[in-house]
């Protein structure tokens, strides 16, 4: 019952998101004027063709439902920039971005938990303070700033280890040349690790100060076991929530990182499409990004309910 309600809410949110995306791209400005620029008044043929493609003559409601219908049946429309179907251009980049985010998550989760455990082990002493200050400083820096600094450090100015951009020849995938993926993944990891690590540390400390951990220590259980068995297991639920939050954040964070490294994913494609005022592409890509965001949050909610016995009984009763 609770699950159905939560699913219904997710669907409702997704629908409202589609309304917003459509209104923002189709109603706020004049895309045709933006594409043609100075040619708007002179190049009447191209203008009429673009207006026909966007259905400018129809009412905004008709256009919305046409678009929504296409979206639901898998027809995402035709790109304005190169007159190719949107879906054909997007399918590859979606996979590329998923791989990038997945790799970042695989590196980030053990790293964040590891740092949190070290920090909690030295709680409120020197190493803890140093780690926390560094994490806090990193948390504020925008991801593309970190990215540029990493590029300067590892590929242009100081060392020459990794390529500064991901060069992908047609027909190959970015992971065919793994050294090109190191810096994008590293940038994403540096961007999200501080948040996860700080939350996990706070939870660990809370548990380590609790009565039952004190009892476990009094019973003579060695500290590493206390840390692993008692503290870490209790930090998993808040951990899942903050990891999900950060994964959802990555859905937007990839926009800048992919653009910086010319990584062929949805983020860079979105920026290119925005520059070209390619309305159908932007609509499809933003629906994908918002959709991922909603699904990740849904999964995190369900998981943390299932892993918390107290909440499980609360919703089933």
């Amino acid at each position: 019952m609770w699950l159905l309600r939560r699913l219904g809410l997710a669907v409702l949110t997704l629908w409202l998101v589609s309304v917003l995306v459509f209104l923002a791209t189709a109603a706020l400005g004049d895309p045709v004027r933006a594409i043609l620029g100075r040619d708007y008044d002179t190049n009447v043929g191209r203008r009429e063709q673009l207006e026909a493609q966007l259905g400018v003559g129809d009412s905004i409601v008709t256009r919305y439902f046409d678009w929504l219908g296409g979206l639901l049946t898998g027809d995402l429309g035709t790109s304005l920039a190169n007159q190719q179907p949107v879906w054909g251009q997007i399918s590859d980049t979606v996979v590329n971005t998923l791989v990038l985010v997945l790799l970042a998550a695989l590196v980030m989760i053990p790293l964040a938990f590891g740092i949190a455990m070290i920090s909690a082990h030295f709680r409120r002493r020197r190493p803890d303070t140093v780690i926390q200050t560094i994490l806090l400083a990193l948390a504020g820096v925008p991801e593309f700033v970190t990215g540029i600094l990493l590029v300067a450090l590892f590929s242009t100015s100081v060392f020459n280890i990794f390529p500064a951009v991901t060069l992908v020849s047609p027909g190959t995938r970015p992971w065919d040349s793994p050294e090109g993926m190191v810096l994008p993944v590293a940038t994403l990891v540096v961007a999200v690790t501080p948040y996860v690590s700080r939350i996990v540390r706070a939870t660990l400390l809370e548990v380590l100060d609790s009565d039952y951990v004190e009892l476990a220590r009094l019973k003579g259980i060695p500290e590493p076991v206390v840390m692993r068995k008692h503290a870490l297991l209790n930090a998993i639920v808040p951990g899942i929530q903050v990891v999900a939050l950060q994964l959802a954040w990555l859905a937007g964070g990839v926009v800048l990182v992919e653009t910086l490294f010319s990584y062929p994913g949805v983020g860079r494609q979105l920026v290119d499409s925005v520059r070209n005022h390619d309305v159908p592409m932007v609509q499809a890509l933003s629906m994908i990004i918002a959709g991922v965001y909603i699904v990740v949050n849904l999964v995190a909610d369900v998981l943390s309910i299932l892993l918390t016995p107290r909440a499980r009984t609360a919703i089933s009763s």
Binding site: T25, A34, A251, G252, V274, S286, A290
Partner: peptide, 18 residues
């Protein structure tokens, strides 16, 4: 609903038509 948009996405979507 608004929270489902990553912040940069909200800006980019509107900038498309401008």
């Amino acid at each position: 609903v608004l929270l489902a948009f990553p912040q940069i996405l909200l800006a980019l979507v509107v900038l498309t038509a401008l």
